[in-house]
Structure formats: structure tokens, C-alpha cells
Amino acid sequence: MARPLAELVLSDDERQTLTTWASRPESTLRLATRARIVPACAEGLENEAVAARPRVRSATVGTWRRRFVERRLEGLADEPRPGAPRTIADADVERGVTGTLETKPESATHWSTRGMAEAAGMSQTAVGRIWRSFGPKPHLRETSKLSTDPFFVEKVRDVVGLYMSPPERAIALCVGEKSQVQALDRTQPLLPMTPGQAERPTHDYVRNGTTSLLAALDVATGGVIGRCHRRHRAKGFLRFLDEVHARVPREPGVEVHLVLDHYATHETPAVERWFLRPPEYHLHFTPTSSSWLNLVERFFAEITETRIRRGVFRSVAALEAAIRGYLEHHNADPKPFVWAADADLILNRIKRVCKRTSDSGH
């Protein structure tokens, strides 16, 4: 006599859950198969008939039929697998993490895996696994600087408000200067990239002079007005303003808003007089030490990464020609940079940073 089949009846919620598990892309193949077996068993079919659908053994169908009857949906999950017991307790993990974050070695500025392993009494492999799991990276360091501008909050709201809610019938331009762009040439020819081998320039280089790139980024369109100047003076900035004034389309009733930083050449008496002439320009200054608020810096980062950093320039003229070529290519099909963080989000993040640094004891 065959063993009688356990009666299996599904509720509406269970049937819906099993359908979701069987069709959800995130489900594992094992769980999806089990989620198909159980509804088939609820139809009153024999194990052999059910096994033919997902192409599994009838014994497998019997196992999951019995597990579901005994423990319902929870019975379809994998049971804990046997294995070697843990050798690192939770207290050891906590000691490794807190020691990395809150202490420093006596003869170094930061912990290494070997140093922390010796101090915590664990293996180097265990320390590396803990760091990967919880995220401390003592070998990395990033720079930061908080603005001391007394009108920081007001300027942040002003500039970010211009990006996210620009006035109607207005042109917003972000003006900035990328100074001291070096024309660098390598001392030996470049070894080109090959399959399995990265491009290899020499580590040493020859300086062939510098230039400065003045740029005005149209926030709405992404187009850029750019000009190179060999000398870093206010006269060059005035000539660039004349070029911007000539190239910006002006219609009656259209205002022009300029986002500027507190660069020395932007605040000379001659520049101030230039802005007093008609038509009126509306100026929006970023806080001190906050050039990241100026969207033109995003364009400077892009041209540096894609055209300048890995370029080889035997003269300043060659560097300036490359910059002009990049500007022409960019303006042929410009794409705007979308500002997504509102003023409250920025100010709350800075508030948390200030609180964390003020409570750190440094």
C-alpha cells in the first residue's frame, strides 16, 4: 500500500504569495520551484504527476508537500546548513570595528589589516572580512572643507533656488575659471592599450606652460561659452564678459542671472563697474570655499577627465586648440546638468557633518 498523501489546502493569501514567489525575478530557482510544486499539490494530483511539471523527482514533491502541510509558507525556506562553528564572536567583530573607527596605532596614522589583526588578536583574513562587511576603509582619505561664510545659508538657498526654480523668461549662466591648466608632455612615447594591457604613459612629464579656461555654462541648455587666457588677470575676465554679453541672445523682458564665486578677478572695481552698465545682470555669489555649488565646475570636471588629464600637449597652443575642439564638440549636442539636491537637503547634511566633527574631540 502506498503512503496516503497529506491533504493540502491553500488559503487565498497563501496562493497569492506562492504566485508572487514563482514569478518574481529576485526569487531563487529553488524557491520558485517549490512555489510551483505546492499549488499543483493543492489540485489533488499525485506526486508523480506534479513532478512532471517542473521536472523534479517525485520524492522532492513529497518532501515539499509534507513541509508545507507541517509549517505552511515557512516550511519552504532552506533550513540552516551544517558547517564549521563560528570562531569569531559578535564581541570580536565589535572590537574590530570600534578599534578601527575610534583608535589609531602608536606608530602610524591609520590601521592596516595586519596591524589591526595583531592589536585585536584576530587573523588578517578575519579583519579584512570585517572591514568589507561593515565598510570602514582606513586606507582611504578624502579632503573636505566647510565654508565660514557668514551668509552661507542665504547664498545656498539663492543659488540652489535659481537651479531648481529659475525665474520665467530668464537666462541662468554659471561663470567660472579653471586656472593653471598645464600643457604636459611625456618624456617618452605612449605605449598604447592592447588586449589585456592598459595604456601606459611614462610617470614623468615636461611642463610646456599653462593657460586658464573661462567658461559660462547655460543651466537650461548645457551649452558653454569658453575662452582661454594665457595670463590670469581681471582684464581677461572683462574681455570674457564682453564675449558673453555679445553671444547671449537677448529679448525684451528676458533677464540674465550669473552665478559667480568670490575669485579675486571677479571682484575688482573694473568688474563691478562693468556690471553697472545696462542691461541689468542679476548676480548670485556662491559661499566662500563652496565652488561645488557652481554648476560650471561640473563641466570643468568633465573636460578634465575626458580631454585634458590624459592628453599629451607639446605647447600651450596645442592645449588651447584641444580645449576649443572640445567646446565645439560639446556645443554641437549639449546636455544640461540636472541639479537634484534642494537647499534643505544640503543644509541638513552639512548640519550633520558639523555636529559629528564638533563631537569628535578633534
Rank of each mutant, 00 (worst) to 15 (best):
D333S: 14
G83E: 03
R141V: 12
P4Y: 01
L101T: 14
L10I: 09
S315G: 11
H282A: 01
E46N: 14
S133V: 08
P278T: 10
V97T: 07
R3A: 09
M164Y: 00
A59V: 13
A32D: 07
A183T: 12
N47V: 08
E48N: 15
R324K: 13
T109R: 11
L347Q: 10
A341P: 15
A52G: 15
C354G: 13
K355P: 13
A264L: 11
R352Q: 05
F337D: 00
A340L: 12
K145A: 01
E26A: 15
G121C: 04
T87W: 06
F313D: 02
S315A: 11
R72S: 04
S165R: 11
E243N: 14
F285P: 01
R157E: 03
P82Y: 04
N348G: 13
R314M: 02
A89G: 15
P167R: 03
H245L: 04
K104F: 02
L8Q: 07
T286Q: 09
L217M: 00
A301Y: 00
L258F: 10
T100K: 08
R227K: 13
A270C: 06
L10K: 13
R356G: 13
P80E: 00
L10M: 06
G83H: 02
K351S: 12
L241W: 07
D333E: 06
R227C: 06
L293G: 14
A321Y: 07
E280Y: 11
D149R: 10
L260T: 07
A215V: 08
S107R: 12
P105R: 08
G253K: 00
H245V: 02
R250Y: 04
E297K: 15
Y163A: 05
A301K: 10
T109I: 05
V156A: 00
K351F: 08
L18N: 08
P105K: 03
Y326R: 15
R233W: 04
E255W: 08
F299Q: 01
M1I: 10
C354D: 03
P54D: 00
D242Y: 07
Q188Y: 09
D359K: 15
P138M: 01
I37Y: 02
S290N: 08
L345C: 14
L260S: 04
S291Q: 05
S147I: 08
T194A: 11
V97E: 02
E48D: 11
L293Y: 12
D218K: 00
I346R: 15
G99E: 00
T143M: 04
R157D: 02
L345D: 12
K155T: 01
M1S: 14
V69K: 06
L10N: 05
V259E: 01
H282K: 13
L184H: 05
S165P: 03
